[in-house]
Design a protein around this nucleic acid. Sequence first.
DNA 1: GATGAATGAGCATTCATTCAT
DNA 2: AATGAATGAATGCTCATTCAT
Lengths: 200, 200, 200, 200
Amino acid sequence: MNKRQTAALETKRKLVSASLELIKEQGFDAINVEDITKKAGVAKGTFYTYFKRKEDIVLEISRAPFSEIANELKEMGGLNTSDKLRHYFHRFMECVEACGINVCRQWTRDVLDPNNVPDTKDGQKWKYDFEMLEGILKDAVSKGELKKDTPVELLTHIIICELYGMMTCWCMSDGKFEPLDWTDRFYQAQIKTMFETYLN
Amino acid sequence: MNKRQTAALETKRKLVSASLELIKEQGFDAINVEDITKKAGVAKGTFYTYFKRKEDIVLEISRAPFSEIANELKEMGGLNTSDKLRHYFHRFMECVEACGINVCRQWTRDVLDPNNVPDTKDGQKWKYDFEMLEGILKDAVSKGELKKDTPVELLTHIIICELYGMMTCWCMSDGKFEPLDWTDRFYQAQIKTMFETYLN
Amino acid sequence: MNKRQTAALETKRKLVSASLELIKEQGFDAINVEDITKKAGVAKGTFYTYFKRKEDIVLEISRAPFSEIANELKEMGGLNTSDKLRHYFHRFMECVEACGINVCRQWTRDVLDPNNVPDTKDGQKWKYDFEMLEGILKDAVSKGELKKDTPVELLTHIIICELYGMMTCWCMSDGKFEPLDWTDRFYQAQIKTMFETYLN
Amino acid sequence: MNKRQTAALETKRKLVSASLELIKEQGFDAINVEDITKKAGVAKGTFYTYFKRKEDIVLEISRAPFSEIANELKEMGGLNTSDKLRHYFHRFMECVEACGINVCRQWTRDVLDPNNVPDTKDGQKWKYDFEMLEGILKDAVSKGELKKDTPVELLTHIIICELYGMMTCWCMSDGKFEPLDWTDRFYQAQIKTMFETYLN
DNA sequence: GATGAATGAGCATTCATTCAT
DNA sequence: AATGAATGAATGCTCATTCAT
């Protein structure tokens, strides 16, 4: 990586971190692209060198923390699906909480209309989440931990939806409910049972 | 009620019904006040004779169908709390479904908005829902069906949040998941158990 | 005057007094016709039974106090023009001060408005002032106190303009300058001398 | 200054000159931002690249001609305060007259309520005038032409108020009175005497 | 890669006034 | 004389995005 590439990476990093701080404080709608670039110390137009739309920053914010989860799961290679899922749930909500309620609000809002704009969908967090979870389940099927006829896509869809349902609850409670408690309760009550049917 | 009052009521009804149709078709953000008044056949300003803000129509839409639920519950006087709750859940989601996914989206979006200043909250559906449910539970406490020390407010908050969580799931699935199935499953798995602790 | 006429007079009085209070507190632009009628305890439309335009209330407010000045001048029949003028000046500013700075602001703004179409001008305080002062001077000419060739209209115009100039100063100073002091100084420095040329 | 900066300056110049022409013809209230940008040949939004509010153009219009006065005064370094003041008065009214009665109306209207909005005040002409005049007087004090205990701020306030009072008179007379005559008369009758007390 | 001037679509809201009752 | 529902004109401003430099 040459000097120029390093500088570019650094510029992007500054944009992401400025955005995160601003959205945490004020919410996505309350800030504009200029606020972000000013805080990042670059010109307005520079934002569009790295992101196609203002909205894209919202996905970007979640990339680092959530990709961390993917790495952890890879390193848990030996463990069984059940343990992996529990870990996924726990860490997912931990990341949500760490990003703050305003960021969570925006992720959730984005998801309310899945048809938004077709080419925007790829830029949304839930799609990203969907693919990660689908990967875990597919892996489990191929390893023979789950039955061959497990409806992976449907299960993935259900779980992701319920995670976002919990995120909505958290936002509604204005942070007063403890998201991790909820997640654990939810995992025990719903997910565990649901998967037992498909375990080999 | 004299002729003028009747006419006024009719005007309001036309505005609500025009709004419902338009939001069902296009979503709240896609329409503007002029679309509504044109469809209702009145002047733009007339909207503001009946509603303080464009947003207020969103609550108004739910008033008629959901107040119907309240009436039904009153007429179920004899039944126990458990049955009343099951009925509430079922009918709540029936109404949500009847109003359509775009209207549901707007209700849900409203509870996610961090800008929701206190005096706007009163104009939101969830506040209205909260009060209706709180009424049912308080009633049950006063009738001795639930224990005196039941944390009514907390339970209300949890249930309302979870209902909105389910609404989020429905919107995310773009209407593909059956909201009533979910509701029943949810009632059995979570609510019933939760309330058993407090039943006398 | 029958009962109905008395009631009507009372309604008008209530409107004027409500307006005066509201404008004193908040300024003319900050209030609307409904504020006035609500405070007066009548329906919105009733305002238009008594006034053609919202603006007309501004002149009306000055009618009672300033017509009082006209009466006083009539009763001073015996005195000379110079004394009458001094009295006029003093009482004029006293009334301005009594009506408050926000009312004064509106009177002054009205004379600055280029949109003041001819038929609105008749509804403005300055026109009313002009006529009263012109009457005093004409009277003085006919009584032989001022020379036959006194340019009555021009003098009237100058004096009225300078009174409004002082009103502007008062508003600018936000009430900090003492309007009566200014008036006296102004009378001594400018008016007295100006009239000496025309005294018989 | 590179090409882009030159172009930007030229755009701003076009906006100011278009505004001046339009306000001269029709008055500030009668025109809207789109009228201005159309006449200037730029897009509506471009106005807001240079001005925060529509009102801000009103101060901007006076910047060039009145800053000219400041320059002249600097070059009159050798002369005494009395001469400088006379010059200031004369040129001030010349500029007012040159900008036209409709522009003057707006300046005067702005000033009627000095509390308008706090952060708007800085954008008003009278503030600008105040500071220029205060500078002249402070200078005179520091040079020993005026006594050390001269109440500079008060004198400045009085003079500025009276200038605006004269502007009100001019507007009221609909341009029929000769503002320069008035100014000279005013200078002789009021200012000269007022300052004699404070001359060393 | 960075810049920042230019673009222009988009709309809720107020409220003076009218007029049928 | 009183009412109050209905009218509809009128517009400043924001800001995501583009693109020439």
